[in-house]
């Protein structure tokens, strides 16, 4: 790797992709604009509340999945 490169990667590509998606779903303005003021309930929650809870669950799941995956593959060391 040249000096302009980034740190060596050991994480599975799907975990990296999930982490990037975390940022996209939490930050992308068009996503939260779409839920602005919506009163339609989704799974019993108002749509904007559902959006934030769904994003948070998605992020939380990514971290748990990453840890379980790395622990199983022995990538975390002892």
């Amino acid at each position: 790797m040249d000096t302009d490169g980034t740190a060596p990667r050991e994480r599975a590509p799907w975990i990296t992709a999930w982490f990037i998606l975390d940022a996209v779903v939490a930050l992308a303005p068009p996503l939260y604009w779409a839920f602005d003021g919506k009163q339609t309930p989704i799974l019993g929650l108002p749509a904007p509340v559902f959006y934030f809870v769904a994003v948070a669950t998605f992020i939380a799941a990514s971290i748990v999945a990453a840890y379980v995956s790395e622990a199983r593959s022995g990538g975390l060391g002892s």
Partner: peptide, 8 residues
Amino acid sequence: SYSLLTVV
């Protein structure tokens, strides 16, 4: 959102 994103 930011409290969970920061854990990533």
